[in-house]
């Protein structure tokens, strides 16, 4: 299998195993779509059951949400730039943009965690009501994905530094870029169907 290298393709597609991995990851993303769809369905059903607890209008703050959204949107863009640099075989550009992406991702997490702490201080916890249970689990699952993505990306940055750009490291970078863009896609829906929906006046 490793003998089967097609150098006319971009680095990440060159080996047969890489092509398998990339397709496998796309299918995994299909599963992730279903997973988040289920969480959205749960939120759709429970999202208005406040049980004497706070309502979205009571707790959501447009400023925090916009900061998170812009950070994540931009990180998705920079992540795209990283892959763009990779396709031009520029390790330095790749690493730079990847690290920028990571920093933006950490920024997003920082704001989000602060937002949650703020909610908890206002007495809005996971245990307060069905609305908040579904809110925290939907958002928490996304946040956990981001956290996992950051740890994963750090591993890949280490490998890129250790090994340079090879078909294998390129494939790994490409796959995490898909993952990162996907997290942004999920956020768009969270932004729309959780935050904006909750704040529509």
């Amino acid at each position: 299998m490793s003998a089967n290298v097609n150098t006319s393709l971009p680095l990440e597609y060159q080996t047969e195993q890489s092509r398998l991995n990339i397709l496998g990851f796309w299918i995994f993303l299909g599963a992730e779509i279903v997973l988040f769809a289920t969480l959205f369905a749960v939120y759709g059903v429970l999202g208005e059951r406040y049980a004497n607890g706070p309502t979205p209008n009571d707790i959501f703050k447009l400023k925090d949400v916009m900061i998170e959204t812009l950070l994540l949107l931009t990180s998705s863009f920079t992540c795209g730039l990283a892959v763009f640099e990779m396709r031009r075989h520029r390790l330095k550009g790749l690493l730079t943009w990847l690290i920028v992406t990571l920093l933006l991702g950490i920024g997003f997490l920082f704001v989000e965690i602060n937002e949650f702490i703020h909610y908890v201080h206002e007495g809005a916890t996971m245990q307060t009501s069905a609305f908040l249970s579904s809110f925290f689990v939907l958002l928490g699952t996304h946040g956990a994905h981001v956290t996992f993505g950051i740890i994963w990306a750090v591993m890949i940055i280490i490998q890129l530094i250790q090994r340079g750009l090879t078909p294998v490291t390129a494939r790994k970078t490409f796959i995490i870029s898909l993952y990162w863009h996907f997290l942004d896609v999920v956020w768009i829906f969270i932004f729309t169907f959780v935050y904006l929906k909750g704040m529509v006046g």
Binding site: T38, A51, Q127, T128, A130, V137
Partner: peptide, 27 residues
Amino acid sequence: PIFTVALALMTFDRLYGTHFFTLSSGG
């Protein structure tokens, strides 16, 4: 993935006192 979520929510309800499927607090 649907089952993964359902079981995770069940775990949250049983271990951490959330209200997805409970009688209390809007589950």
